[in-house]
């Protein structure tokens, strides 16, 4: 038995695979690569595999974290990454696994990139007002929670916002809290729609870049 953690990316066409489908996909990937997963005990045994911070469908990431328990006791980690990558669907790639020393719950911050598309507007003209908007001291947004609709000020949970032109589009990067509270990057668009709809993009696409601990160290 061997507990391992690995980082993987989910980009391109793979961003549309749902969290649940991804779990099933990985389960099969481990089997066809020859690294069977240990199963939980009990009435309804399932493979021991967890992916931290489920990604929304349509969002990409180059910093996903997955914890698994293998049946075997030892493994050549570099070879394992090669073997897994050989049988993964397009857009999903893993890095060599390692033995985790932290708990996934220690992830606190996420660096995320957004590409904003505007129809019939010049991106360059939006950069300054967008910068001004995201540095407001209050960023109230109403969102659905388990307890119904609620207003949250996301300003304390969104930091280091940069905004630049990206061809015809606007490229935003921000660091958002993903643990108490969880700020879905889509709130960055929602907050525009609700407070300054003129600045809201017609379409936005997000990619996770890196995950950090409370102390802003890269999470391993």
């Amino acid at each position: 038995m061997l507990k391992l953690r690995m980082r993987f990316e989910k980009t391109g066409r793979a961003v549309y695979i749902s969290h649940l489908d991804l779990m099933h996909t990985f389960h099969r990937v481990f089997l066809r690569a020859g690294y069977p997963l240990k199963h939980s005990e009990g009435f309804n045994p399932h493979p021991i595999l967890s992916i931290a911070l489920p990604l929304s469908v349509g969002h990409g990431s180059v910093c996903e974290i997955m914890d698994v328990t293998l049946v075997q006791d030892t493994v050549d980690t570099a070879q394992m990454a090669v073997d897994l990558n050989a049988v993964l669907p397009e857009g999903i790639r893993v890095q060599a696994p390692y033995i985790p020393e932290t708990k996934a719950s220690a992830i606190k911050w996420l660096r995320v990139m957004g590409r904003y598309e505007y129809d019939g507007k010049q991106a360059v003209e939006l950069i300054a007002p967008l910068r001004a908007f995201y540095t407001c001291s209050e960023l109230p947004v109403s969102r659905k929670t388990k307890r119904g609709e609620g207003i949250i000020d996301i300003a304390p949970y969104v930091k280091d916002v940069t905004i630049n032109a990206d061809g015809e589009d606007v490229r935003l990067a921000a660091t958002v809290s993903v643990n108490e509270p969880t700020i879905n990057p889509e709130l960055l668009v929602k907050v525009l729609q609700q407070n300054d709809p003129e600045l809201a993009p017609d379409f936005a696409e997000f990619t996770r870049l890196e995950i950090f601990t409370e102390k802003m160290e890269v999470f391993r």
Binding site: R13, Y16, I17, S18, V57, G58, L88, P89, E90, F203
Partner: peptide, 24 residues
């Protein structure tokens, strides 16, 4: 991927069936 397609995929049910890219 077609930009127009990128816009609609997040809106539809089970978008993974419209993308291809599967193993094999």
């Amino acid at each position: 991927m077609d930009k127009r397609l990128k816009r609609i995929l997040p809106k539809v049910q089970k978008p993974a069936r419209y993308t291809g890219g599967e193993y094999n």
